[in-house]
Write a protein that binds this DNA or RNA. Structure first.
Length: 648
RNA sequence: GCCAGCGUAGCUCAGUAGGUAGAGCAACUGACUUGUAAUCAGUGGGUCGCAGGUUCGAUUCCUGUCGCUGGCUCCA
């Protein structure tokens, strides 16, 4: 009865195996090395355990830890190994879920209080489980059996998961030694195949991500195929900590936070204020050159304004509560849109005037949850590079394009090149969460998509990420700690014009409703500067550096010349300071370098005589002596070009 | 807001098995007069986050509170 079955392999060839063979045996038969390295099979596109029997006629490919999918499977198994270790050390701990994440995995537990000292113990137990090389077995189980099994063990999370799964899915258990877990798989053939791992931290996490439900303890870990990958990961983590804007912001005196002032209320120190002012001038000038009209509006408003806009209903919990003064109830504004609607509304507009682009560096206050606050990245008082474009529907495409181009220009000037575009649509399965107007949504979403395609820009599409009032384009960047955040955003809005009854007089003499485009290019000054600190590792390019030049005298005798040079540079609009302290030149240079000042000019007898300066550039080192005029031309050119400080 | 951890000089950190604390850097003072990443010497500086409690005695133990960090949730 030993009939043969046939599989097709990756290279297109076919191979025969006796019926009932497993994928592991197939891999082994193809070569001892593959047999040793394969961790999972891809069968007709789906990942399958090596222990399973070969399907006749299948298209088969083997994956190793060199493949992302192989690594994925190992990380998944690693999560199980961790859960097993936890069960051994702390019997009675309940397991919730343990998925794979970037670089590693986590597992959520309940009914045990974890302590930091537990991490090394868990790690140690995991190593033991790996050394035991327990075979990992897959078992198909019926729904009733599974429910009975987990109910008996008091595994409430597993029971809930099973109950929520559709009736027709095949339930599987994975068993390794004494440990059993409900899991879709696939897994490594045995625990011994887990390579390098490291537990990272504990964190609280709500069951099913729902803040109303039980808080579990999440244990994070990373896992890699090789020790060197883990070392590299740790190196990058270390580097990330070093470029953390909170650390650099303190070291470089850019901003400060203190409980006396209030949580999430940053003070911009002189250095930070200089950087911010340069950015503000830059963006305002640029916007004005593109037809934006900058305005100033108050940071407080009558709560009625937000009732008109609809924000009160949706977002009042995230606003500072109203204060009653005279006959008014005033709130700190959490966004600028309503004010700008009123700017538009102060008189009637003709179709000929549109688009009207109202812009402002608008300061706003949001009651962010205390646990969400982080340095300048997440604050409760912030200033947004905001603008609202009021246009006719036929101008949407052109205006949207204009904003995308503006963003590209700005990113180029700031040397930001690691970002991606995300087009956010409404969730088609959940349309009641959004403003009701199917036609508008379809048109708006397709317009945004078309513009991105016309501009030849890559983008990802995210259903369900839209604002409730319209679709949007976000520009996403990553913080030093690897978190995604939105830097720029463009949002179409068909809702506020209705709420505020905005109108323009059309060619036909009738009243029409304009469309509003909300957009932030630089985003909030707080988040943008936080991002720049991290991106530049605190070494701002010369055009942005708070201090561009330090003139360091070699000895007291040359203090006068140093002051003279610094004064001359300042007259030319270059931010220069003289260091005429009685420290040695080596010390002054070190100071300038650790403060990441772009240029240090060393002056002594020679320079005074020649009217020259010895130029030392940040990181690049000594560039030699040159006439002061030449240095001025050079640095002015660099500032003009907004050149990067150090070419990466 | 929730879970966990942390909170000692301006900064980075050590320390006290309960007997009111220490280093480096920074600051200040003086000497040195300096040529490309730290000259030398000296001085000052902390009710050990805050408030209660236990104790003869608390920075150390307990409770509460505020803040910070990691994550969750949120992010118009």
């Amino acid at each position: 009865m030993s009939h043969e079955i046939t599989v097709r392999l990756k290279d297109g060839s076919e191979r025969q195996m006796p019926a009932g063979s497993t994928y592991a045996e197939l891999a082994q038969s193809m070569g001892p090395r593959l047999g040793k390295e394969a961790v999972v099979a891809r069968v007709n596109g789906a990942l399958v355990d090596l222990s399973r029997e070969i399907e006749d006629g299948a298209q088969v490919e083997f994956l190793t830890l060199q493949d992302p999918e192989g690594l994925y499977v190992m990380r998944h198994t690693c999560a199980h190994v961790m859960a097993q270790a936890v069960q051994r050390l702390f019997p009675g701990t309940k397991c919730a879920i343990g998925p794979v994440i970037e670089n590693g995995f986590y597992y959520d537990f309940a009914d045990h209080d974890f302590h930091p000292e537990d991490l090394p113990r868990i790690e140690e137990e995991m190593r033991r489980i790996v050394a035991e090389d327990l075979p990992i077995q897959r078992e198909v189980i019926s729904r009733d059996e599974a429910l009975r099994f987990f109910r008996e063990r008091g595994d409430r999370f597993k029971v809930e998961i099973i109950e929520d799964l559709p009736e027709d899915v095949t339930l599987t258990l994975y068993r390794q030694g004494e440990f059993v877990d409900l899991c879709r798989g696939p897994h490594l053939p045995s625990t011994g195949r887990v390579k390098v791992f490291q537990l990272q931290s504990f964190a609280g996490a709500y069951w099913r991500g729902d803040s109303k439900r039980e808080m579990l303890t999440r244990v994070y870990g990373v896992a890699f195929a090789k020790k060197s990958d883990l070392d590299e990961y740790n190196r990058l983590q270390q580097e990330a900590r070093e470029r953390d804007h909170r650390r650099l912001g303190k070291e470089l005196d850019i901003f400060t936070l203190s409980p006396e002032v209030g949580q999430g209320l940053p003070l911009w120190l002189p250095n930070g204020a200089k950087i911010r002012r340069i950015i503000e001038r830059y963006i305002v000038d640029l916007e004005e050159s593109l037809g934006y009209q900058h305005v100033y509006t108050p940071h407080l408003a009558n709560v009625e304004l937000y009732k008109i806009s609809g924000h009160w209903e949706h977002y009042k919990d995230d606003m500072y509560p109203p204060m009653k003064i005279d006959n008014e109830e005033l709130v700190l504004r959490p966004m600028n849109c309503p004010h700008h609607m009123m700017v538009y509304k102060h008189r009637l507009h003709s179709y000929r005037e549109l688009p009207i682009r109202i812009a402002e560096l608008g300061t706003m206050h949001r009651y962010e949850m205390s646990g969400a606050l982080a340095g300048l990245q997440r604050v409760r008082a912030m200033t947004l590079n905001d603008a609202h474009i009021f246009c006719r529907p036929d101008q949407i495409e052109q205006e949207f394009t204009g904003v995308v181009r503006l963003i590209q220009r700005v990113y180029k000037d700031f040397g930001i090149d690691d970002y991606y575009h995300r087009l956010s649509y409404r969730d088609p399965k959940n349309t009641e969460k959004y403003v009701q107007n199917d036609e508008m949504w379809e048109l708006a979403q397709s317009t945004l998509r078309k513009v991105m395609l016309d501009l030849g820009l890559e983008f990802v599409e995210a259903e369900g990420e839209a604002a409730f009032y319209g679709p949007k384009l976000d520009v996403q960047v990553r913080t030093a700690l690897g978190k995604d955040e939105t830097l720029s955003t463009i949002q179409l809005d068909f809702h506020l014009p209705n709420r505020f009854n905005l109108e323009y007089v059309g060619e036909d003499g009738e009243r029409h409703r304009p469309v509003v485009i909300h957009r932030g290019v630089v985003g909030t000054m707080e988040r943008f500067v936080a991002f720049l600190i991290e991106q530049y590792k605190g070494a701002f390019p010369t055009w942005l550096a708070p201090t561009q030049v330090v003139v360091a005298s070699v000895a007291d005798e040359f203090a006068g010349y140093a002051e003279e040079v610094a004064a001359k540079l300042r007259e030319l609009g270059i931010r220069a300071e003289a260091d005429v302290s009685d420290n040695k030149i080596g010390y002054k240079i070190r100071q300038a370098q650790t403060h990441k000042i772009p240029y240090t000019l060393v002056v002594g007898a020679r320079e005074r005589e020649e009217g020259s300066v010895s130029v030392r550039k940040y990181q690049a080192g000594d560039l030699g002596a040159m006439p002061l005029d030449q240095f001025v031309r050079q640095i002015q050119d660099e500032i003009e070009r907004k050149a990067k400080l150090v070419e990466a």
